[in-house]
Simulated assay, not measured.
Amino acid sequence: MRVKALAVPFALGMALTGVALSAPASFADTSAATVTLTETDNGTAVSVHTGDVIKVQLTGSRGNGLTWTWSTPTASSTDVLTQTDSASLADGSVTATFQANSNGTTVITSTKGCVPDPGHFCSHLMQQWNATVTVN
């Protein structure tokens, strides 16, 4: 009990003398946030911190001999965001995961286009998707 009784006056004395007390590195908060972006986030801007994870999930569609498929999302600056994973599904959906590496701003982009089955035809319409990510 004597040790506990001395800890508070010691900490108070250190604070009054301007000496900062901090937790050991093993107690530091190392949890990374995860931000998920979907079609509804088209054109938005998000801010994250170094170490955070950004997941992009874009939904394609298939029907009437046509598949509306998304390209794999890419970041304009791989120094700011590094792509760590991606997957494409038969229905045209894609997912991509990025790790925030360094301070800066980058734009994640993807394009949705039509892929016809044999005997079917697509329009040449393309849909752009983008989100601006700032890491600080």
Rank of each mutant, 00 (worst) to 15 (best):
129 W>A: 03
116 P>G: 04
122 C>K: 00
16 L>E: 13
91 D>M: 04
42 N>L: 07
87 A>Q: 04
19 V>P: 07
85 D>I: 01
105 T>D: 01
39 E>Q: 09
4 K>F: 14
124 H>L: 15
80 V>I: 08
115 V>A: 10
78 T>I: 04
77 S>E: 00
62 R>C: 14
41 D>H: 00
8 V>F: 13
68 W>K: 04
127 Q>K: 11
87 A>E: 13
125 L>S: 14
103 N>E: 14
20 A>Q: 11
121 F>Y: 14
23 A>T: 14
72 T>A: 08
76 S>F: 03
100 A>G: 12
83 Q>K: 10
101 N>T: 05
28 A>V: 08
134 T>M: 03
20 A>S: 14
69 T>I: 13
106 T>E: 00
29 D>K: 03
21 L>S: 14
102 S>C: 09
73 P>M: 00
99 Q>H: 13
84 T>F: 08
37 L>W: 01
96 A>I: 01
25 A>Q: 10
36 T>I: 06
82 T>M: 15
73 P>T: 01
116 P>K: 00
127 Q>I: 09
127 Q>H: 10
64 N>H: 05
41 D>V: 01
127 Q>E: 11
87 A>C: 13
58 L>F: 05
44 T>E: 12
109 T>A: 09
74 T>I: 08
6 L>A: 10
28 A>D: 12
111 T>D: 07
111 T>M: 03
23 A>H: 08
61 S>C: 01
112 K>I: 14
80 V>T: 09
84 T>G: 13
109 T>H: 04
66 L>G: 04
59 T>A: 08
69 T>S: 15
1 M>N: 02
96 A>F: 02
134 T>P: 01
112 K>D: 04
131 A>N: 06
78 T>N: 09
118 P>E: 05
20 A>G: 07
95 T>I: 09
131 A>G: 06
55 K>F: 02
82 T>V: 07
83 Q>P: 13
65 G>Y: 01
28 A>G: 12
35 V>S: 07
37 L>P: 00
136 N>Y: 12
32 A>N: 12
34 T>I: 11
103 N>S: 15
117 D>M: 02
72 T>C: 05
50 T>W: 11
89 L>S: 15
126 M>H: 15
133 V>C: 02
86 S>C: 08
86 S>K: 00
20 A>M: 09
90 A>Q: 07
